[in-house]
């Protein structure tokens, strides 16, 4: 029981770090890395819970999260590239025409 709690706390800490990173950093690549950190903290939480309950659905979920994260990375990096070609920067403060 105690061991699971440690993993849950670690997951929550990692998730918070990722969230703070997304909110604070201005480089889109770093923001994207922080999002991946958040997804991995979810994975850790899922695996710990799955182990605790002695059933596999949490672990199956992790496989899907990893597959989706890979697909998102492919699309996301392509989008960041497109933005770079148009703005010659990947900083959120530079990619900022639309407002009102």
């Amino acid at each position: 029981m105690e061991v699971t709690q440690f993993y849950l706390v670690l997951g929550a800490v990692l998730f918070t770090l990722g969230t703070l990173g997304v909110l604070i950093r201005r480089n889109t690549i770093v923001i994207f890395m922080c999002i991946e950190l958040m997804l991995n903290s979810v994975n850790l939480t899922m695996v710990a819970l799955s182990r605790q309950f002695g059933e596999v659905s949490g672990q199956v979920f992790v496989f899907f999260v990893m597959a989706v994260a890979a697909a998102e990375a492919a699309v996301g990096l392509a989008i960041i590239m497109t933005a770079f070609r148009n703005y010659h920067s990947v900083r959120t403060t530079d990619v900022h025409d639309l407002a009102g």
């Binding site: 998730f15 990722g18 997304v22 889109t28 923001i31 994207f32 999002i35 958040m38 997804l39 979810v42 998102e72 699309v75 996301g76 989008i79 960041i80 497109t82 933005a83 070609r85 148009n86 703005y87 959120t92 990619v95 900022h96 025409d97 639309l98």
Partner: peptide
Amino acid sequence: AEGALKYFLLGAFSSA
């Protein structure tokens, strides 16, 4: 391009 970037980053953030 800007719209896609914003949608992607915030969308991935919210799905986390």
